[in-house]
């Protein structure tokens, strides 16, 4: 009992009160591209990018492909690319994942009135990894730990797809998991939606050219939400899902 109390005292209060305004120090998050012309014919950033995330003229970074390795920043002779610790990068559309020149932040995920009505007070999620490396999976687990504590909003992981409203996919979708992904989706009752987490799921990422994948599931069913990263910071996921569901309550309100 005394040992337990000692742990309790050492534990203190660990939760992050305001999840959406918290900035994780040191995190290599949202890349920004400063304005100004590139050197004529320069393709340095594109050449070092392992996932073809960068397009030129005008220069843009596709966060659906970016693995945040940071190689492009030092490669650019004009120092146009800079990584910030911003975590808010989710989007309801693939176009929304594009970072363009001069942009200072990404616009928050647009709230879906329909989803807000249905799931704004309770959302159950089933996670399925289909080739995920345990990076995304570990960070998704973390959203439920004592620091991020997403359950405070009634948002929880569930064991069975039968209980789930959202299918949260990670990994590039391997051929050997194709049947299981389909089965999980089929087992989910309507209304339901898909969240694509990490560069692997969104675009194939580092595994795009692999012949061991079967991504046809995503050509038949479109994700409602994209959460970029490699892996995404838990807060990237948290902010995206709260914005999508239009959950505005701050923490003070919840404790009332």
């Amino acid at each position: 009992m005394l040992k337990s109390l000692r742990v309790r005292v050492s534990q203190g209060s660990q939760y992050i009160p305001e999840l959406r305004s918290f900035v994780p120090a040191g995190f290599r998050g949202l890349p920004l591209i400063s304005e100004g012309a590139c050197l004529s014919g320069c393709t340095a950033c594109q050449t070092v990018c392992p996932t073809k995330a960068i397009s030129l003229d005008p220069i843009r970074i596709d966060l659906g492909r970016c693995v945040f390795c940071g190689e492009c920043a030092p490669a650019c002779p004009e120092k146009k690319i800079e990584y910030t610790s911003q975590v808010r990068m989710g989007s309801a559309t693939l176009e929304g994942l594009m970072v363009t020149e001069g942009q200072k932040s990404l616009s928050p995920v647009a709230t879906s009135a329909a989803l807000k009505k249905m799931f704004g007070r309770s959302l159950k999620m089933r996670q399925v990894s289909a080739g995920g490396c345990n990076g995304c999976e570990a960070e998704l687990n973390a959203v439920a730990n004592v620091n991020f504590d997403l359950q405070r909003y009634g948002i929880e992981w569930v064991a069975s797809p039968r209980h789930a409203d959202a299918l949260v996919l990670t990994g590039p979708l391997t051929r050997n998991m194709a049947d299981a992904v389909e089965l999980a989706w089929d087992a989910m009752p309507e209304p339901r939606f898909i969240v694509a987490v990490g560069a692997c799921t969104i675009s194939g990422g580092l595994y795009e050219e692999s012949s061991a994948l079967d991504r046809t599931f995503l050509s038949r069913f479109s994700p409602t939400l994209y959460v970029p990263g490699c892996p995404p910071h838990p807060l990237t996921f948290v902010a995206a899902i709260l914005d999508l569901l239009g959950i505005q309550r701050g923490d003070a309100e919840i404790s009332k």
Partner: peptide
């Protein structure tokens, strides 16, 4: 085997130093 992504094949397709 569900997680098989073809890592070893991909490692040979790209620049060995990158």
């Amino acid at each position: 085997g569900y997680q098989h992504r073809g890592v070893e094949t991909l490692l040979l397709k790209r620049d060995a130093k990158a």
